[in-house]
Amino acid sequence: MSEKDYLKDISEIKNLMNKSSRFISLSGLSGILAGIYALIGAAITYYLVDTYSYGTLMLDGWIFRTVMLVLISVALFSIVSGVFLTTRKAKKNGEKIWDKSSRRLIYNFLIPLISGGLYILIILSQGKYGQTGGLMLIFYGLALINASKYSIGDIKYLGFIQITLGLIATLYPGYGFWLWVIGFGIMHIIYGTWMHFKYDVK
């Protein structure tokens, strides 16, 4: 057997190990859609706050409740799109959508995300909302990095970018909204496009 055949066998073994330990059917299109939803949500939020709240978001009143509803809607649309597109890709690749690797992916993604969400709710209840956008980016980035061990490793790079943007947002709270737009909106679209052409298009 030639050296080329050995290298081919090693590559095939590595691919089989990755498939058995990682959930690799994440869809790049879901990232693009998540970014679009985030931009739409940000546009609605900006309009509401700028028009009816004079550029300042207060924790009481209908503006804040509406903004929270917009954020929840963005998250729900992103989740539904992600589940649908990922399920479709998994079926196409002959993978199970709910197996050991996908469960580990979800658990490791949710632990930092839920912890961060609860922490943000706590500081909001204390009237400290200046760094909310930065904290959302940081905990989301940590969730991506934590989940990358059980999925496509490239998502950790998006996680590092989100954390960096989040740290900048905590240093400059006045730019938190726009950094949130860059992180959840623009970076998702860029990342999703890159992942789509790298992994989805064959």
Rank of each mutant, 00 (worst) to 15 (best):
Y191D: 03
I72A: 15
L85P: 01
G141E: 00
W98E: 00
F160H: 05
L165D: 05
V83W: 11
L16R: 12
E3M: 09
Y129P: 00
I63F: 00
L29I: 13
F109Y: 15
L7H: 11
Y47N: 10
D60T: 14
I24T: 15
S151D: 03
M136L: 15
P173F: 07
F23M: 11
A34W: 03
G134D: 02
G134C: 10
Y157K: 06
V181R: 04
T56I: 15
I138M: 13
G166L: 03
A169E: 04
Y46D: 11
I97N: 06
I24G: 05
R104E: 12
H188F: 14
G31N: 05
V67L: 08
G130P: 03
S73T: 15
M58K: 11
Y46M: 11
D9Y: 10
I186N: 10
A147C: 02
Y107N: 13
K8F: 08
S73P: 05
L39C: 12
K96R: 08
L110K: 01
Y47F: 14
L144P: 04
I24C: 01
Q126G: 05
T45C: 11
M187T: 13
A75I: 06
G174A: 08
Y191F: 15
K19F: 01
L71F: 12
D200M: 03
D5R: 12
G28D: 03
A143E: 01
A42C: 12
K202W: 03
L69C: 09
D9Q: 12
I111N: 01
T45L: 03
M187I: 12
L135S: 07
F23W: 03
I44G: 03
S151K: 01
S27G: 08
L124K: 08
P112M: 07
S11W: 02
L142P: 00
I168C: 09
G127A: 08
T51D: 04
K198N: 11
F177V: 08
G41M: 05
S53A: 15
G28K: 06
F139Q: 07
G183E: 03
M68I: 12
M187F: 14
F23S: 13
A75F: 14
R104G: 04
Y157W: 15
S73K: 03
F177K: 06
S27N: 14
Y52S: 00
S151P: 03
N18L: 12
G153W: 05
I13W: 05
I111C: 10
A42E: 00
K89C: 01
L76C: 10
D99A: 10
D50S: 15
V201L: 10
K96F: 02
T66C: 05
S27V: 07
G35L: 02
L124S: 11
H188E: 10
I36N: 07
G117T: 05
A147R: 01
T56D: 05
S21V: 09
S21Q: 11
G166N: 06
L33S: 09
S20H: 02
V67H: 02
L118G: 09
A169C: 07
L124M: 14
S78A: 14
S27D: 15
I111T: 09
F77S: 07
L113A: 15
D60W: 04
E3W: 06
D5N: 13
L179I: 07
T56R: 10
K96D: 04
A75E: 04
M195I: 13
